[in-house]
Design a protein around this nucleic acid. Structure first.
Length: 104
DNA sequence: CGGCTGACTCTGG
DNA sequence: TCCAGAGCCAGCC
């Protein structure tokens, strides 16, 4: 049975300066779908150690509406993540992968 | 206890 | 490029 806790744990494994997608995290959890990841992040309490800001949609764009979305972009830029003219992140560049976590 | 909504992703037109 | 439908878990009223 998948739990939000499992998703939180995977998100916490995202290294600094890297970003991941809902679908990617879902696959890493296994037997989980992208929606559950989104729901899990939505369930994150304020002040949680989960780098939720390092999680974006498959398009490399921020799906988080409202002010939080703006802050997410700031946090990513603060970590060295670059955004595209369309406000999208180069997943090919900052996209995190368990195999890429060793070196760029 | 019952029903609803919510930070996704993929496919077809 | 935009719209719609399906699959999933948890918190909330």
């Amino acid at each position: 049975m998948i739990r939000h806790q499992e998703i939180h744990d995977v998100v916490m494994t995202i290294p600094h300066g890297r970003v991941s997608t809902y679908g990617a995290v879902a696959r890493r959890v296994g037997g989980c779908t992208a929606r559950l990841v989104g729901y899990a992040l939505s369930s994150l309490p304020t002040g949680s150690r989960v780098p939720w800001h390092r999680v974006v949609n498959a398009q490399g764009r921020i799906s988080l509406p409202g002010e939080a979305g703006q802050r997410q972009r700031e946090l990513l830029e603060s970590e060295g993540v670059a955004f595209d003219d369309a406000g999208a992140i180069d997943l090919d560049r900052h996209g995190w992968s368990a195999a890429s976590s060793q070196s760029a």
